[in-house]
Design a protein around this nucleic acid. Structure first.
Length: 946
DNA sequence: GAGTTTGAAACT
DNA sequence: CAGTTTCAAACTC
């Protein structure tokens, strides 16, 4: 590989727009010479940006589908990690872990050291532990169970999960001796652990002990022996999480199980392919068996129907990855990896539901996590519907990474991002565990949650870009996890096939089998929007056939710069192109969930097809599986998903129906807001859901509205927030269709921001937020964080209304008062606000204000009105003006459809809300173009404009 | 796999 | 703002 610098330079020279090297090259560690690193790096990119978002996202997990999933990332890492772990069990790994805990990986270390995975695992485990600690007893119990599972403990002391374990243990025993030995080691370690902690009590606090163990290990860097302990502990935590997750998941969604099983199978296959040795394979099998047994048992305990089995299968797969090395180690690592992967997979499968579940908890526990991945703007690819696939790409942009606390690590950052993703997964798992922590007994709640989430998340399809996710370290939003997981699967394959560009071609763009897109750029170096990967905010991955690609973690700086430049020109450039509009009612069309429904989603800009009649993928609307809207300038539109005319009509109808009292209530009812708030507070709504809700709720209009009347605005904002909260959302917005509908919504977790513009902003915000606030994020719930970040950003950015800002600031303070949940609401507001520009721009300025940010956000929202008017996608606007809407599309701008309706009018009427139609932007992961965006926005151009 | 078509993105 | 060029995906052969 060229040295990054050199490449950058050349690239910069080559790329007209792009690239500024300045920062650069130096940053990116040259490391990558080894193909492996390159490979890894490729994977890593995703992490940074998206991860952060994702984190919140989890909530998302729901995330969206599509877009590109960078395949490799997760799977590869896991696999590589596992393998490496085998090789290097050495304390170094532990040290990494330790470091990771406090920090993140160094590039070199991460890259070079195979330990990465372990680190990730460790981190996850640690996080999990933290969560568990937070959760305390409950989690502990679960963890204990997990430990037992892993250990196959002799003791089944723990009645709960433990019992199930016994059988597993037996099986494990059956496993080949070699493997058995490893198992035994693990068991021993576990046992010791248990003994220490519990001393044979049925219910233990293993978690704590596990954590302690981990800490000890970290601190001391004990030799291999300890490693197993750590691993075991990790595995235990992971296992516990898995169990919890599985349980809840099983309850909530069987379908997911099926899906998961399928995936598992596939993963297994791939794993096999990857599998190095029969020996390893055997180990895997063992692990699988165990896990299967364990999980099965666990699941059986809780719910057998469910997914547990699938999980086990998944686990097994994971185990494969971890083939070798010392059995015990391998086992541990495998367990960990498996756990991680399993969780991820689950996440992926269940993703939406899970995320939602997690998010709430995450938000509750750790504020931050939640931050939605605001940033992520989905590209067309991301389009919820269109991409049913799950490829959520894991690829995260480094950009995010830079922003990320871990700035120091560049290349590593990518790794970190991956790790983060993983962590996120773990986190999510933790959240689940926490939720379920209570053990089986407690499960009911979790299960209920899960069920709820599952219902909400129904659509698995949604994917999210990773970049944004990466931003949030913690966040590791579910989305990220999901993506990662999905990617992991792919990554495995990729790993197998080191050559990056092989695939190339277009796997059908948006989705390869995975549903991940891959670019084939030749001249743009993947630094322009021509590149789907770049546009989606993800790094190019191996599958990409691009030439001279700079959209890689190594070139984070370049990518960021380029991105910023693009955003400076068009703040919405990275915003999700497709906005989902949720109908309050299931579907006037009768097609509730179907994104395809014309009413369900729209392309932000609209297409401009002339020859394809919107019946081919040339049409972005068609490609996104969305109907054409008034914003489209297509000729002879025959979009099967909905024609412009239809769209208008539907809007009309919807508006009539929807507008009804609810909107009014929302607007006016302070009580409503209160309810929402209470709901938000109470409910652990996963961020994603919130997002969804937000998305659903025609927030933007509300925001605008709020702008008009500040007081009202606040209330609305609140409402928006409420919307964010799942429960509130449901109540408020729609009645329930929302959740179900939005598979996308789930995706949207990333989307959080909701409206396209909003989304974009959010995406950018998130990124920025993450970067700036990474630390803060941790503190606050992820969602909130993101929101908060966004808010912060917004104020700054908003140039226009300084006065507003002031007023807003006061408001923001109020917001600050609000708990994280509120923050989430804020995010919703943001979404509703829809003026992405502002936010984005604001983002730059505001970084960290946190609370104040929220307030600002509102302000920004007001500004957003302006923006919305300008930028808001036609779709959004359309939604607002239910009837008239016929075509809002601005004549001039091809893409940008100027808002037909007066924002004020709409806002006042909250027409958008009333209409009941909600659009969700699936934002493409927008990089955090830190500052520049604002200006452009302030300029007021419609995003596209020129 | 190469070549053509298409429409978005970028540029002027 | 409009028009043109460039680009890469989608499509066809």
């Amino acid at each position: 590989m060229d040295s990054p610098q050199g490449v950058k330079n050349t690239f910069a020279a080559a790329a007209s727009t792009a690239t500024t090297d300045t920062t650069s090259s130096s940053e990116s560690p040259p490391v990558q010479e080894s193909p492996f690193f390159n490979y890894v790096n490729n994977l890593s990119p995703i992490k940074p940006v998206k991860a952060a978002h994702v984190a919140h996202g989890f909530p998302g997990f729901s995330s969206p589908p599509l877009v590109f999933t960078s395949p490799h990332i997760n799977s590869h890492r896991e696999a590589s990690l596992l393998r490496r772990t085998q090789y290097s069990q050495s304390p170094s790994v532990e040290s990494y872990q330790n470091e990771n805990v406090g920090k993140r990986y160094d590039h070199h270390d991460s890259k070079k050291s195979s330990s990465l995975l372990p680190n990730e695992l460790v981190n996850d485990a640690q996080k999990d532990c933290d969560f568990k600690n937070y959760a305390n007893t409950q989690s502990c119990s679960s963890s204990v169970c997990v430990d037992e599972y892993l250990a196959d403990h002799v003791k089944v002391d723990c009645d709960n999960p433990v019992h199930s374990f016994e059988p597993e243990v037996k099986q494990s025993d059956e496993v080949p001796k070699s493997s058995v030995g490893g198992l035994n080691n693990l068991r021993e370690s576990i046992l010791t652990f248990e003994d220490k902690n519990v001393g044979g009590e049925n219910v233990r606090m293993p978690v704590v002990s596990s954590e302690q163990m981990l800490q000890e290990e970290r601190g001391v860097e004990q030799p291999h022996k300890e490693v197993p302990d750590l691993k075991s502990s990790l595995s235990l935590t992971l296992a516990s999480q898995k169990q919890q997750f599985e349980e809840s998941f099983a309850q909530g969604v069987r379908e997911c199980e099926d899906y998961g099983e399928n995936t598992d199978v596939t993963s297994n296959v791939s794993a096999e392919n990857t599998v190095l040795n029969d020996y390893e394979v055997s180990q895997k099998h063992r692990g699988v068996r165990r896990r299967c047994l364990q999980f099965e048992e666990a699941s059986s305990n809780t719910f057998r129907n469910s997914p547990s089995s699938p999980h086990a299968a998944k686990i097994v797969i994971n185990s494969r990855a971890a083939p070798s090395s010392s059995e015990s180690k391998s086992l541990h690592s495998s367990h960990v990896a498996l756990n991680a992967t399993s969780t991820k997979k689950q996440m992926v499968k269940l993703s939406q539901p899970i995320t939602s579940l997690f998010l709430p908890r995450c938000s509750g526990n750790s504020p931050l996590a939640g931050s939605k991945r605001p940033g992520i703007g989905l590209h067309l690819n991301s389009i919820v519907n269109a991409v049913p696939l799950a490829c959520a790409t894991s690829t995260s942009m480094r950009l995010a990474e830079d922003c990320m606390s871990v700035q120091s690590m560049k290349p590593a950052s990518t790794m970190n991002s991956h790790v983060q993703n993983i962590q996120g997964c773990s986190i999510s798992s933790n959240a689940l565990t926490e939720a379920s922590a209570g053990n089986e007994d407690e499960r009911p709640e979790t299960s209920a949650l899960i069920a709820a989430t599952s219902t909400i998340s129904e659509s698995p399809t949604t994917m999210e870009p990773l970049y944004l996710l990466n931003h949030f370290e913690n966040p590791a939003t579910l989305h990220d996890k999901r993506k990662l997981s999905s990617e992991h699967a792919e990554s495995f394959e990729e790993l197998n096939q080191p050559s990056p560009r092989k695939k190339k071609k277009k796997s059908p763009s948006t989705s390869d089998g995975d549903g991940c897109k891959r670019c084939n750029c030749k001249k743009t170096k993947c630094l322009k929007l021509y590149c789907d990967c770049f546009a989606a905010g993800i790094y190019c991955a191996e599958p990409c056939a691009c030439q001279g690609c700079f959209n890689r973690p190594e070139y984070e700086d370049t990518v960021l710069e380029t991105r910023q430049q693009i955003e400076s020109r068009n703040p919405l450039a990275f915003a999700p192109k497709i906005i989902q509009r949720l109908n309050m009612f299931p579907a006037h069309n009768g097609e509730e969930g179907n994104l395809t429904t014309p009413s369900s989603a729209r392309h932000k800009r609209g297409c401009n097809c002339k020859k394809s009649m919107c019946l081919k993928k040339y049409c972005e609307c068609y490609q996104a599986n969305v109907g054409c809207s008034s914003g489209c300038r297509c000729e002879g539109c025959k979009n099967i998903y909905g024609r412009k005319e239809e769209y208008v009509a539907t809007e009309h109808a919807l508006s009539c129906d929807m507008v009804s009292s609810r909107v009014v209530e929302e607007r006016f009812d302070g009580t409503f807001n209160h309810k929402l708030e209470s709901v938000a507070n109470n409910t652990d709504l996963p961020c994603p859901e919130l997002y969804d809700l937000q998305n659903l709720s025609p927030i933007t209009p509300s925001l605008q509205f709020t702008d008009h009347g500040k007081g009202a605005a606040k209330s609305r904002l609140l409402s928006g927030k409420y919307l964010l909260t799942p429960g509130s959302d449901v109540t408020v917005l729609s009645s329930g269709t929302k959740f179900t509908r939005s598979p996308r919504n789930s995706e949207n977790n990333n989307v959080l921001l909701g409206t396209s513009k909003e989304v974009q902003d959010a995406g950018s915000f998130d990124w920025r937020m993450d970067y700036n606030n990474v630390g803060t994020m941790d503190q606050s719930s992820p969602i909130c964080d993101t929101d908060g970040n966004v808010c912060n950003l917004t104020p700054l950015s908003d140039p226009p209304s300084s006065a507003k800002a002031s007023s807003i600031s006061s408001r923001t303070r109020d917001w600050n008062r609000y708990p994280q949940t509120q923050a989430c609401h804020r995010s919703g507001h943001l979404l509703s606000g829809g003026s992405l520009r502002w936010r984005s721009s604001q983002i730059t300025a505001a970084t960290q204000l946190g609370e104040t940010k929220y307030l600002e956000c509102f302000d920004s929202d007001s500004r957003l009105y302006d923006i919305l008017e300008d930028e808001t996608p036609e779709v959004l606007k359309e939604t607002a003006p239910p009837i008239k809407s016929v075509k809002v599309s601005s004549p001039n701008k091809k893409r940008i459809s100027p808002p037909n309706v007066d924002m004020h009018d709409r806002s006042s009427s909250s027409g958008g809300l009333k209409s009941g139609i909600k659009y969700i932007l699936k934002a493409v992961p927008s990089f955090p173009p830190l500052t520049p965006c604002i200006d452009s926005k302030s300029s007021g151009d419609k995003s596209e404009g020129n």
